[in-house]
Design a binder for these strands. Structure first.
Lengths: 225, 225, 225, 225
DNA sequence: TATGAATGAGAATTCATTCAT
DNA sequence: GATGAATGAATTCTCATTCAT
């Protein structure tokens, strides 16, 4: 018994299981996915799974954490750029637009992970919703910080930043889920333009001529490319 | 055996079970809620449940359908008002704002149902996601129709209506989930104003002076109240 | 509530329920038949059933008892005839053949009851198999008595009457189940002839010329008709 | 949790469960036997059962199939012998008698399986009666083939072979159920003699002197032993 | 008498997790 | 490390029976 399988480095084996898990969870949903499904997809035996993870919840959370880690990096990079833009006097709208595009690309490039986070993890499953709540709030506060920075520099009109943040996140998440994942739209550049255009008009300070700002920003981007 | 419980009209009993179910599902999540939980919450015996519903999925879907029925009514009423506004020459922005407020009030007044729909029903649970998908698409197309109507009358700039619809729905859902349900904000009127203000600026035709339109609309509302 | 249904004499209602029950049990089997099925077939409400019977087992047993009562009467009549034949000196083989035909006709005329007794009641269901065992043994001993009578009068060769009885009953039951109920053969007269012919040859005393006995018996029957 | 039990080879474990199941089904009947009963009898946990069988119906049918497989082998061997007898000119009645004895021994040696097949499996339980019907018909047709062969060789009088088959099967089944299983008669040789004696007298061609045939056959057997 | 809503014991089945090999 | 047979808690669902109306 115990047909011995290839012995591969610990980290690689773990990565293989995570790969299998993300597919299985996205395909069947957390509830309907069984550990056995994951094991089969990973080509390992029942017991092997538990050498790498403590439980079903554990793999799932690891995937969710990985999503938020990656997304946090994008948000932080954007903050950085924005701050740099203000310091160097370059157009902050370019940072803004870059962020939106980066977000769309990240989600669109990780459809299964996105599916898992926004359609599986969010759903009061005592198991992990507390942790997911924290992670979401973290991400949200990073977005909020971006708006605060822009507000401080007089870029925004006197909107309720909390509300603006919710609208902004809601918009990006929905566009991603709906237009990108479901309807397979792949003109991400154009979507990013639509979104930023919308946001500038909605949020920019009256001192800023939104129309013109968008023109300038487009020109800048074109020049950059 | 058979500790007898007071008999109540069939419709009332069913309503009681639905009431219990919505609480249980919102509290524990679809996955973690057992039929026994619902029965206990409703104060009935195990078997009684099955006199009114075929399965756990069945109650759940009935709740979800009820959400969408109610929401559909709100969407249709809004369409009606908007159409009337165009016909009678009254300010369509008032209809627009009324709709946003009605949506916020509906969700805020039905927090558990909202929770269930947006955090439980949306999540690839083969059991019902097909049906939920259809319902969501129905609702979405009603919102889209509203935008189409406004676009036809020259109220909007040349935005991609699909994208605008996703942004709009995402915004309202997120605001509801985040600001209303989670953070218990109850200044719905103010939230509605913020949202509509945002949307007008983002979407209104350049021929319309958003700034002014918002002023007028506010005045109208005030007069009405 | 409680839509009042026709009030009919107690005995008639009971008969109606039995009628419904025999059909339902034969159709679905004891196990798969639900009281509700019977109630629906009888056009009565759930509770009404229990005004006439104590339990599911109770109706079923009542049907089984009814089968054995009817069959017992046939067996007793046959005994009677046989005894008369011996007394009056008429051909006992005519009685024998009459009995076989009567048995075939009875079973063939009550296919559902037969089905119930031989395919449902016989099957160690603690519920009622003890009682069924007794009833079967009763019937068996009546058949055995017939053979004993014939043996006493020198009609049979020195066979083991117990074995002969089993063979005889097995034959009739199987023929009924197989040829009559399953294959819908309706030439009962011919079947009876085959069976009796068989039995005479197998069991008749060597002093009796089976060949001739059968001829005579046939002639007698023909004369009678 | 998970009080571990000694691991035994898969085939052995399955055999143990089947052993337990045959006892439980014979004891309580299919309907009254619960999977838990089988598990307890087999000394395994609830879930273990499902590693080997899909359902209660599944184990049951496996037992039934096993009965018919074993019986089919006996029937086929008998056919073979009979054919050989005709070819080599040895007494076919010896084959006949061998078969009857083998059948009695098989059933008497597997009382629980016999009980299950003839008292549980035969009974319109939608679950499996279709399959059982097929198996019974298969067995029946093998018996019929034996009679056809004998008829072709002029061994039988012009009886309706269908009827003869039913009588023959009914006789053996009833004798087994009644005399062997219920009344614990163990003089199988004598029973076989009685049955064959009966059958020869009932079915043999007039050209054959049944009386003498039986003598010869008995002598042959004695010589053989 | 008749009704049918309500009851709850009981059964089958699933699957995350354990651990002897 | 790897395996996979075994475990058993937990869940859904059925249906004979009761009894207030």
């Amino acid at each position: 018994m115990a047909a011995v399988r290839k012995r591969i480095p610990k980290e690689q084996r773990k990565a293989e299981i995570l790969d299998a898990a993300v597919k299985v969870f996205a395909e069947k949903g957390y509830r309907n996915a069984s550990i056995t499904d994951i094991n089969e997809a990973a080509g390992i035996a029942r017991g092997t799974f538990y050498l790498y993870f403590d439980s079903k919840k554990d793999v799932f959370l690891e995937l969710v954490e990985s999503y938020f880690n990656q997304y946090a990096r994008i948000l932080e990079e954007n903050q950085e750029h924005l701050r740099n833009a203000f310091e160097t006097g370059t157009d902050p709208l370019v940072s803004w637009r870059n962020f939106v595009l980066a977000a769309l690309e990240f989600h669109s490039g990780n459809p299964e992970l996105t599916e898992i986070v926004y359609r599986q993890a969010i759903g009061r499953d005592e198991d992990f919703s507390a942790r997911v709540e924290v992670l979401l709030e973290d991400a949200r506060s990073k977005v909020l910080d971006g708006y605060k920075l822009m507000a401080e520099r007089g870029l925004l009109r006197g909107v309720d930043l909390e509300v603006a943040t919710s609208i902004s996140i809601g918009a990006i998440v929905y566009i991603t889920m709906d237009q990108v994942l479901r309807k397979r739209r792949d003109d991400l550049e154009k979507l990013a333009d639509e979104i930023v255009d919308n946001q500038i008009r909605a949020l920019a300070s009256p001192r800023i001529d939104a129309e013109k700002a968008i023109e300038v920003s487009k020109a800048n981007r074109a020049a950059k490319a």
